[in-house]
């Protein structure tokens, strides 16, 4: 399964992402398990915080650059940098080099970005994982988060691995590729519009008939989970890595006593 020329296990630096670190560590542990099962050695550089998107998308370029420099330095020496989020991986991979155009650090940023991958596409496209040994009784519907879909072309990879999970049935929702209305700070800057968008999304989710909603980005998942719960839906919401790693014994996102 490994493709390294040296025959040694690839050394992966896990970019945990701030939301997983703070809100849902389970996703981080699921990512570690999936990577280790695929033969990688996983380390978690302690000097990481956030990819910088809140600053970047608010027009604060200087703070973004400072955060990006920290991140690039923190992840020196790894074969790969993997994040359980298409949005954060997209930021590291596609946007970091643009922040340092024409500067001495640009080459370093490009080399860094070449090593960055989103978790599930890394497993499938880079390592060549074709199936996982996990079991999940029930039906799931998968939301394609925007950055992963459009910046990193993640669409078939999670579905391929999910179809190898025993007992799991995929029920596609309508407009799975349409934004959920999260958009980072957008959802608090324009709550009324965000609500209209996520309301359409949860309708499509419920109409899929699945009992569990999966996606690859915790921001989108928290938005959709929060809306479903406000609507009184009993839909369970999880990060796709939790199901692929067979670690679905924790309570779902925002799920507790009603």
């Amino acid at each position: 399964m490994l493709d390294t020329k040296t025959n040694s296990a690839p050394k992966v630096g896990l970019f945990v992402t701030c939301l997983v670190d703070l809100f849902r560590p389970s996703v981080g542990f699921a990512a570690v398990k999936l990577l280790e099962d695929a033969g990688c050695v996983v380390e978690v550089p302690p000097a990481q915080t956030c990819c910088g998107q809140p600053a970047y998308n608010s027009g604060d370029r200087e703070d973004t650059r400072a955060i990006a420099r920290n991140t690039i330095e923190a992840f020196e020496g790894y074969d790969y940098i993997v994040a359980p989020s298409g949005s954060c991986a997209g930021m590291l991979k596609k946007h970091y080099p643009l922040l340092f155009k024409g500067e001495a650090i640009e080459q370093q940023a490009v080399e860094f970005s070449n090593k960055v991958h989103e978790l599930v596409s890394f497993l499938v496209d880079v390592i060549g994982v074709k199936s996982v040994s996990a079991r999940h009784e029930g039906s799931v519907t998968y939301h394609d988060s925007c950055s992963g879909l459009r910046e990193l072309r993640i669409r078939s990879q999670p579905r391929a691995l999910l179809s190898s999970v025993e007992g799991l049935e995929i029920r596609e929702m309508k407009e799975a590729d349409v934004c959920c209305g999260f958009g980072g700070t957008f959802c608090v800057k324009y709550p009324d519009i965000s609500n209209a968008i996520v309301g359409k999304k949860t309708q499509n989710i419920r109409e899929s008939g699945a009992d569990t909603l999966l996606a690859g980005d915790l921001g989108c998942l928290m938005n959709m989970a929060g809306k479903l719960q406000r609507e009184g839906s009993g839909m369970k919401v999880r990060h796709v890595a939790e199901v692929l790693a067979g670690m679905d014994d924790t309570p779902p996102i925002g799920g507790g006593r009603n």
Binding site: F23, F29, V188, V198, M222, G226, T250, G254
Partner: peptide
Amino acid sequence: RRFRYLPLAGGWTKYRDLPAPEGRTFM
């Protein structure tokens, strides 16, 4: 394991619940 209202997060909780953190951070 979630909030219906949280100070300073009104933009979020006006329309959605906010999932609570699981516990200690991953790090």
